[in-house]
Design a protein around this nucleic acid. Structure first.
Lengths: 344, 344
DNA sequence: TTGTATGCGTTATCAC
DNA sequence: GTGATAACGCATACAA
């Protein structure tokens, strides 16, 4: 004997209409504060029916009808990277404001995987795509065909036919290195990335700019993986140099964290023996030892701008928004005791 | 003059059928390696048409028809917490294996927000819900009504009517503290969480278990926010104690990172003056200074189990899977120089 | 103010 | 092996 008639079928707007003694259209009007008005009394009845039945609109049907899914896709290389974690969080909360959900995906730095993910997201009918691409020139033909708005994240400059956001990598880097120069350093090395992307290049250029402007020679450069391990190994290399730099500029927090480890292992003191400034300024940089002075990227602002740019929906127009990364002074640059000579 | 006839309307299966000179059904059969066979020749023609037209199946329509969206929801308190970041990444990659996308959301430790997020996810027709709840007893009536499989993450024990996964919080904590005892510590404090959830309680109990078994008094306990700041403040408190502990067990990596900062500021040496073991064992714990000895949660395994449990789809049955957290020995416990007295 | 009816792109059942 | 065609649940133009 079956206990209950097995109401496996989810309740639909038809059930609600029946229960409330109205038509399905009216239910729609109520649910969507619809295009038509509803008499207060009827509205109440419908609302009650909805509550009674536990009705929940079917998003798939809605998406099909309307042609919009209310979902956007976010592709980063690694959501475990504190910078992207911060970014993802900001994107999520900004998207929630306009009732959008976010599908998060990791490309693991693989261009082919990234491409697959984008394809997948497109077929999921996402209303927009936020892409922190591994490549300088991602293949987004399919997104364009599908008329899906795309905003490129973490970009150094405009990309023909797309909206994009990013910080002033070059100037910010120059500022960071200038700060080290103000501290009196004359041998300033750099830990850079393995990939030759524009954001990497611009940060290298900014470092070189500052050095050149001060008439200083370029310190040693080590290119390493963007992760903590990369920074660690780069640090070991730099520290074992015969003519070791007295300051190091690191292109990411993660690398700086790795660097810090090699530094501690070598018994080198920061900032006394070696000053460090990193890029990103994520939460992790604040709690390293010593806390890292860093160029902080205004992640929340950028996320907001990205979502807005998505909303404009206009595909095909080139529009890059540059944000200013700002110097967050903590201990690793040496701004503690002998901070006399500093301006600003 | 309009250049091209403005093909704004996306390509549908009907277009493909037309282009290939077949019926829409056949297109379906081809796309889905359908329930029916198609002649190799026809199949080729369809495939060509798909390529030519750049056809992409409409996921919304598919979801509506099939009643499954191919999307699962993941709710954590903060994807910025390295533990959850790791977890989310593992979930994403595990979900991708069976072609599921993941909507990631942050509850920010708010029970009401968490509830709203769950509601939202349900109406998005997610095929499953992975929930690392803020509360011991989350309200999931609506999920149950909607017959959406739910797996509770980061749980200490079974929850009536739900699948769940988690580690052996209590035993793992006992092990951690026993390790400190092996190192000869007799005053072992604890940094615990603010919320009184079961996972917190069990970790506290494990700490007490180990102490009791060794005939040791309970060291000081400080309850603090689960973030880095909480650990920092807790650390300052503990360090200023007249009878300061020689070892501290921290309930999370983030707290331990914060603790480390307070320790460094106070000029206390780890592990010489103060040994530390933390919980989680995320990447961040490996690159702190000193690197943290930690009970590592097998995040990848748990993610896999969670996705599998989701797949079984049976709602309503109670089923808790416990995983073993394992001790990862690094520097902070003192396992460096004087590591003689250690077993295992 | 409310009801009727149509179509969104798919899948799958039925005929052929 | 292939072609019609009926839902899936919703939003809305149109009729009443």
């Amino acid at each position: 004997m079956k206990p209950t008639p097995e109401r496996r079928r989810p309740v639909t707007r038809g059930d609600v209409a029946l229960h409330a003694g109205v038509s399905t259209a009216v239910v729609s009007y109520v649910v969507n504060a619809g295009p038509r008005n509803v008499a207060p009394a009827t509205r109440e009845r419908v609302l009650d029916a909805i509550r009674d039945l536990g009705y929940r609109p079917n998003a798939a049907a809605r998406a099909l009808k309307l042609g919009v899914s209310g979902i956007i896709g976010l592709v980063v290389s690694d959501n475990t990277n504190p910078f992207f974690a911060d970014y993802a969080r900001a994107v999520e909360s900004e998207a929630a404001v306009i009732d959008l959900s976010v599908i998060l995906t990791n490309s693991a730095l693989s261009a082919t995987l990234e491409h697959q993910l984008v394809q997948k997201l497109i077929s999921r009918q996402v209303d927009g795509l936020l892409l922190a691409s591994t490549e300088d020139d991602p293949d987004l033909a399919s997104a364009r065909e599908a008329h899906i708005p795309v905003v490129l994240l973490d970009r150094a400059g405009p990309e023909e036919g797309f909206s994009s956001v990013g910080v002033n990598f070059r100037e910010a880097s120059r500022l960071a290195v200038e700060h080290l120069i103000l501290h009196g350093h004359r041998k300033i090395g750099i830990i850079s990335g393995l990939t030759g992307g524009a954001t990497t290049r611009d940060r290298e250029l900014g470092w070189a700019d500052a050095l050149a402007a001060a008439g200083l020679p370029e310190g040693p450069m080590v290119r390493a993986d963007f992760g903590r391990i990369g920074g660690y190994e780069a640090g070991r290399q730099l520290l074992s140099l015969p003519d070791r730099p007295t300051a190091i500029y690191s292109l990411s927090d993660m690398q700086a964290i790795g660097l810090l480890r090699s530094v501690h292992e070598a018994g080198v003191r920061v900032p006394e023996d070696l000053a460090v400034i990193s890029f990103d300024g994520s939460a992790e940089s604040e709690y390293s030892w010593p806390p890292l002075t860093a160029m902080r990227q205004p992640v929340a602002d950028m996320a907001k701008a990205a979502i807005e740019a998505l909303g404009h929906g206009v595909t095909g127009i080139t529009n890059h928004q540059t944000f200013r990364a700002e110097l967050v002074v903590r201990r690793s640059c040496g701004c503690d005791a002998p901070a006399r000579e500093l301006s600003e």
